[in-house]
């Protein structure tokens, strides 16, 4: 099964790398860039929700915080790469600060706190006008530059995001398949048993919040510098649900699920453009259908099918996509 994973990964990245060559449609490429930006945050959400079992309804807030921190730093003359990294670290710290006081909370109660926390973040961004320009948002955010070359065209933007996503998928795969990933999954399954086996639930829960928030913050930073503007309304709680939808549709607790989900949920509404503002409804409807009909999402369902086909083989479990 490991071999299947490798084959899948190979085809996935090969197709992804060839897309700009085949695809002459710049607008579609732009959408893919947006999808890849979202997939970074969705991957972070997946670490917390899919691998540690803590349903977050507040990742849009962390995403937004990352976008604003990076945008503001770079608007104050901090080099863009430094600003982006700082945004990731800042949001990770905020995630840790959110993780510590909520250690005693389980299930939906925790989810609610993440939701409220994210709402407060956005309200502060809206109301702190002297710093954030309030509801108007920030414009003219400098693009990512490498030497004298700036990432403003779709093709280089696409390759940059593809590289970043590849790196982050790789890091996530390493985490998930290591002793740390095992500890997180143990916590998802039973916190009591994990604690009894010598795993400090507090430590790893907070760590999961930190890693997850780092991804979210980095995703936000990409949003700022690749799209060039930010508005607080891009990060409201409906967007948190949008991110969850990406994870669920792609496959919760799977490596490539959030990426596939982000791409699908970004591209799909474009085919229904006859309706204005149809994106959120479509997202919600697709998510409900998946929740009912295929709770494993695309990747989870494909894995289940593959497993059924190879039922005779004893190693047919968990191909770890």
């Amino acid at each position: 099964m490991r071999a299947n994973t490798k084959t899948f990964s190979l085809y996935f990245w090969l197709v992804a790398a060839l897309l700009p060559v085949v695809l002459r449609n710049i607008y579609l490429l732009h959408l893919l860039v947006v999808a890849l930006i979202y997939s970074v945050t969705a991957m972070g959400l997946n670490i917390l929700t899919g691998y540690t079992g803590k349903l977050s309804l507040g990742h849009a807030g962390l995403f937004g915080l990352g976008a604003y921190v990076s945008a503001l730093l770079s608007l104050h003359e901090v080099p863009v790469p430094v600003a982006m990294l700082a945004a990731g670290i800042a949001v990770a710290s905020v995630g840790v600060l959110l993780g510590i006081p909520t250690l005693k909370l389980q299930g939906h109660y925790l989810s609610i706190v993440t939701l409220g926390f994210s709402e407060i973040l956005i309200l502060i961004i809206i109301n702190w006008k002297s710093l954030t320009n309030g509801p108007g948002g920030l414009r003219g955010i400098p693009p990512i530059s490498i030497g004298s070359f700036s990432l403003v065209d779709e093709v280089p933007q696409y390759y940059f995001m593809l590289g970043l996503v590849a790196l982050l998928v790789w890091v996530k795969a390493r985490i998930v398949h290591s002793h740390v990933g095992l500890a997180l999954r143990a916590i998802m399954d039973s916190e009591t048993a994990a604690e009894a086996m010598g795993i400090s639930v507090a430590y790893y829960r907070v760590m999961a919040f930190g890693i997850s928030s780092f991804y979210a913050g980095l995703g936000g930073a990409c949003f700022s510098h690749l799209l060039g503007y930010v508005s607080p309304y891009s990060f409201q709680s409906a967007e948190s649900f949008g991110l969850l939808g990406m994870v669920v549709v792609g496959g919760i607790g799977t490596l490539y699920g959030p990426v596939l989900g982000a791409v699908l949920m970004t591209l799909l509404p474009e085919y229904f453009r006859a309706f204005a503002d149809f994106r959120l409804i479509l997202n919600a409807v697709v998510t409900i259908i998946l929740l009912i009909k295929a709770p494993g999402g695309i990747v989870g369902t494909v894995q289940a099918l593959a497993r059924r086909r190879q039922l005779s083989a004893p190693t047919a479990r968990g191909c770890g996509l």
Binding site: A238, F241, L244, G245, V285
Partner: peptide, 27 residues
């Protein structure tokens, strides 16, 4: 249909229904 699914799915479904209501009203 989600009564026997993990409660996380049910919760997400209620959010999705809320979003649909809101967006339909907006339209």
């Amino acid at each position: 249909p989600l009564l026997e699914s993990p409660s996380r799915s049910y919760l997400m479904c209620t959010i999705a229904v809320g979003i649909i209501f809101r967006e339909v009203a907006k339209m």
